[in-house]
Design a binder for these strands. Sequence first.
DNA 1: TAGTGGTCTAGACCACTGC
DNA 2: CAGTGGTCTAGACCACTAG
Lengths: 261, 261
Amino acid sequence: MEPSVGSERSKRAGTRSRATAPLYQLITQRLTEEIRTGVLPVGGLLPPEVELCKRFDASRYTVREALRTITERGLLVRRPGAGSVVIASETPTAFTQSVRTVEELMNYPADTFRKNVSTRLVVADKALALLLNCAVGMRWFRISAIRRTHTSPEPLGWTDIYLLPRYSKVVDAVDHAQTHVYRQVERMYGEPTVRARFEIFASRIPSRLARALNVAGGTPALTFVRRYYGASGENFENSVTVHPERRFTYSMEVQREPLRN
Amino acid sequence: MEPSVGSERSKRAGTRSRATAPLYQLITQRLTEEIRTGVLPVGGLLPPEVELCKRFDASRYTVREALRTITERGLLVRRPGAGSVVIASETPTAFTQSVRTVEELMNYPADTFRKNVSTRLVVADKALALLLNCAVGMRWFRISAIRRTHTSPEPLGWTDIYLLPRYSKVVDAVDHAQTHVYRQVERMYGEPTVRARFEIFASRIPSRLARALNVAGGTPALTFVRRYYGASGENFENSVTVHPERRFTYSMEVQREPLRN
DNA sequence: TAGTGGTCTAGACCACTGC
DNA sequence: CAGTGGTCTAGACCACTAG
């Protein structure tokens, strides 16, 4: 269906003065445009590499370079023997947030630290099992702590950390109070956190914490549950934090960008 | 410093039976390992491509394929004329969350909908200016609505949406109640949301909303502030939602993965 | 079995960097 | 200026897919 047998590249032929874009980028543009406008429909097959070589009067390397770019942008899936299938007409986008550490995600001020109040082995009763999503009777090493800043006298909140007992040695680390426990587990036991889950809901200050947090029991609070999962998918740490009103605002920012996977 | 003049590739020589990994992957492994262990130190230069060709007895294409992979993993920066600089000893990782729509991020149940209660033009007083981070006297189009589910009689929460007046026509859209306003602005005015910011904090049910939400005034609540920014960075929409306790839990999940940028 | 994409070679010219 | 990485060609063999 090409107008003639000739390639689409006559003008460029001799011009090797790199005022022009590289040929593979030109091919990328052309094909991307044809995918976007439906000339190459989603679900359909792209012409094979050899065909594209003829059409653009380019070597296979150059054509493949273009196809690589288009594939990376999420418009193509390529399989040996089966061809190149168009899977999208334009690069899908998403809102993403990316942080180096979970601390950043939680946006605690940098001068925040935990002060441990007690550590002990606990057995999950019905209520705890429900909260931690575990079996009744499961044993956890519990670290109870108050979170404070250096600048304000009022505590930010109260945290109960529930850790698999085999990782309980983290409390002996010198920087235990400043570092997040999941990071210590990573460093001391080589168990990396691969996935984490957070839940936030409105709650009331439990009366047993009222004095420690210097607020009246029953007043509004923010409860923060965090669940950490290791490489095998095991849930090795959970924490439950209660923040009195006006002491803590959780904030996050997301960007729109191309979706990758 | 190579032990002899020979390449590192004698065993593979004849074996073209693809039970072995491709050569470029082998080179990738070797170099990655040397970067990780400091044989090729961070900040230092990689040997030029021609050198690596000799060392691995490979063509330039094959070596470049390996270097491309290593570069994509964030360990190298390559510049024409200047060489390949090692910039990290291992792939940096981050926790990321990626969602297609802000709805997903907010994890509202799918059967949720808004019911508008009132719409009018408002002028920011001091309190509103503080909340929306805008100038006193700025004019906003305010949409007040109740958010409900089809399954429960209790409302999920109350939302006040503050929109730039020029976008107020979104209320006329047929699917206005089911679609998020920022999506409507995108579709009707071609203003894409490029960035969004969220803040969550503990609060109390304002007495003016107590009846509408069917709870007592002053009881614990979750307040959710969302700010949307367009392509030019302009803050074109804000919303403030109040959820009574036990009616709404915000949850999110993050994955650890290689950092890209 | 014919055709696809994946890997690989041995050349080449270029623009650009840093000396 | 010599040397670097970026682009490009014209070949080749392979494993795999689909008919």
